[in-house]
Measured scan of single mutants.
Amino acid sequence: MGTYKLILNGKTLKGETTTEAVDAATAEKVFKQYANDNGVDGEWTYDDATKTFTVTE
Rank of each mutant, 00 (worst) to 15 (best):
K5L: 11
N9S: 09
N38P: 01
N38W: 12
A25D: 11
L8F: 13
E57S: 05
D23V: 03
G2W: 11
W44E: 00
K5D: 02
G10D: 03
E43K: 08
V40L: 11
T19Q: 07
T19S: 07
I7R: 06
A24T: 09
V55N: 02
A35Y: 03
A35G: 03
A49G: 07
T26Q: 11
W44C: 02
K11M: 14
E20R: 08
K51Y: 14
A24Y: 11
E20A: 11
V40N: 03
K5Q: 05
E57W: 14
G10H: 10
V30S: 07
T3I: 10
T56Y: 10
E28G: 13
K51H: 09
D37S: 09
T52Y: 03
A25Q: 13
E20I: 15
V22Y: 12
W44I: 03
T45R: 14
T17N: 06
E28C: 06
L6M: 05
G42I: 01
T45G: 07
A35M: 06
A49P: 09
L6A: 03
K32D: 02
K51A: 08
D41F: 07
D23P: 01
N36G: 06
K14Y: 08
K51W: 07
K32M: 11
T12L: 15
Y34S: 02
V30M: 10
G42E: 01
T3E: 11
T12S: 10
V55F: 08
L13H: 12
I7V: 07
T3Y: 09
Y34E: 02
D23H: 05
N38K: 14
W44T: 01
A24R: 10
N36R: 12
V40I: 15
K32E: 04
D41M: 10
E16T: 08
G15A: 13
T52V: 12
A21F: 04
N36P: 02
T18L: 13
T52R: 03
K51F: 13
N38V: 08
G10L: 14
F53G: 00
A27P: 00
V30K: 07
L8P: 01
E43G: 06
G39T: 04
T3N: 09
G15F: 10
I7P: 00
V55L: 06
A27K: 00
K29F: 14
Y46D: 00
D48Y: 07
N36E: 07
A21W: 02
A27E: 00
T26F: 14
T54C: 05
K32I: 09
T50E: 09
L6G: 01
N9F: 07
E43N: 14
M1D: 14
N36K: 11
K11A: 13
E16W: 14
G2A: 15
T17V: 13
N38C: 04
D48N: 11
N38G: 04
T26A: 10
A27Q: 00
V55D: 01
V40Q: 04
G39Q: 13
A21C: 06
Q33E: 09
D23I: 02
L6W: 02
W44Q: 01
K32L: 12
E28T: 04
T26G: 10
T18F: 13
T17W: 14
V22Q: 15
G15M: 13
N9H: 07
T17P: 02
E16L: 04
D47T: 07
L13S: 13
A35K: 01
G2V: 13
M1L: 08
D23Q: 03
A24E: 10
K29H: 15
Y34M: 05
D37Q: 13
D47G: 02
T17Y: 15
L8C: 06
L8Q: 02
K32Y: 07
T56Q: 07
T17I: 13
W44P: 01
F31T: 00
Q33C: 05
D47W: 04
T50F: 06
D41L: 15
K14Q: 13
T26W: 09
V55P: 01
A24I: 11
D47Q: 07
D48L: 07
G42C: 02
D48K: 09
A49W: 15
M1P: 15
N9Q: 09
T54A: 06
T17M: 12
